[in-house]
């Protein structure tokens, strides 16, 4: 059969299409682990630096509130200043009791952040341990953890916390964190269990088993490091949501007692003078929202950086 036009045997010039050795390792690129890879993608995003700097500042304020204001949040209150507007040395004005709003916002940081941090730590610890044991060992252990988790999951966190807080005497940041984590752990446990389950069924775990690596060592060295990424993301985001939860409980009057300074309490007390003096509400609320926002943004960035699908596209 004669060749039709444009279909003759064509061979490209060799200079134009040089043939490379088969499958040779490209040594020009620097070696990088998945975590180094994630770090690399994170540090290129301005959002990462914004949220990190915010979190750093919040941490400093929570640890050393005295560095940021010389005014005492409760000793310098003078009724003469009640609902007063901003003035020199008191940029946010005064509360109804004549306390400095700026000082109260600064000193309220610690309680709110403590609850968020503690609850996140507890929930992550419980979720990771229970989730990985359930997912990895399966069987009756999995059945028990999953069913108990289902039961706790059926009680929405704040509803459960309302019940517990309304029967518990005098709350502290620690007890509020405990109560919140009692109802919030199943979420992380479920995510961890799913991730562990898929890691356990992966070929590298089978390979390690066949190589003679012990079961527990595989869990510690292979399964957990490969399952932890989604938990880190959720934990970062939930730090923010726990702070909101604490403020909601305080707003309802069953969170931290009014003697403990927290954003939730200040917002709750601002209700009464809201129409005449909105700044009493706005400043602590803004501080709270900025904190939550910082952790939300960090969570988003971590998700993008740790997501294998997103990584494959890079």
């Amino acid at each position: 059969m004669p060749n039709k036009s444009g279909q003759a045997h064509f061979v490209a010039e060799l200079e134009d299409t040089p043939v490379a050795p088969i499958d040779r390792l490209d040594e020009s690129q620097k070696a990088r682990s998945t975590w180094a890879d994630a770090w690399d993608s994170m540090r290129r995003r301005p959002m990462f630096w914004i949220s990190s700097v915010l979190i750093l500042i919040i941490a400093l304020v929570a640890l050393f509130p005295g560095l940021f204001t010389s005014v005492s949040p409760n000793l310098d209150c003078q009724l003469a200043n009640s609902n007063g507007g901003p003035e020199a040395g008191h940029p946010f004005g005064f509360t109804r009791q004549g306390c400095d709003v700026y000082a109260r916002t600064i000193f309220g940081t610690r309680a709110s952040v403590t609850v968020g941090l503690l609850a996140t730590g507890l929930v992550t610890l419980m979720g990771v341990i229970l989730g990985s044991l359930a997912g990895y060992y399966g069987g009756w252990l999995d059945a028990i953890v999953s069913r108990v988790g289902d039961i706790f999951f059926a009680i929405p966190t704040i509803l459960g916390a309302i019940v517990l807080m309304s029967v518990l005497p005098a709350a502290t940041p620690t007890s509020v964190a405990f109560v919140l984590s009692i109802f919030a752990w199943p979420q992380i446990a479920r995510i961890m269990r799913g991730a562990v389950l898929s890691a356990t069924n992966s070929d590298y775990v089978m390979a390690s088993t066949a190589l003679g690596v012990s079961k527990f060592r595989i869990l510690l060295r292979h399964v957990i490091p490969n399952s932890i990424a989604p938990v880190i993301v959720i934990a970062t985001v939930s730090l923010g949501t726990f702070i909101v939860a604490e403020s909601t409980l305080s707003f309802l009057g069953i969170g931290l007692p009014t003697s403990v300074m927290s954003w939730g309490n200040d917002i709750s007390q601002a209700q009464t003078s809201l129409v005449t003096n909105p700044q009493v509400l706005l400043y602590p609320a803004a501080a709270l929202s900025i904190t939550v926002l910082a952790f939300l943004m960090l969570g988003d960035i971590l998700r993008d950086a740790l997501d294998p699908k997103a990584r494959a596209l890079r």
């Binding site: 909601t248 707003f251 917002i267 209700q271 129409v275 909105p278 609320a285 709270l288 926002l293 939300l296």
Partner: peptide, 22 residues
């Protein structure tokens, strides 16, 4: 959406009531 998530419902409630109501 980030802003809405980071503002607690009760703060938004007060603000909406203040702005759109009062």
């Amino acid at each position: 959406s980030l802003l809405l998530i980071s503002v607690p419902t009760f703060v938004l409630g007060f603000l909406f009531r203040l702005i759109f109501g009062v």
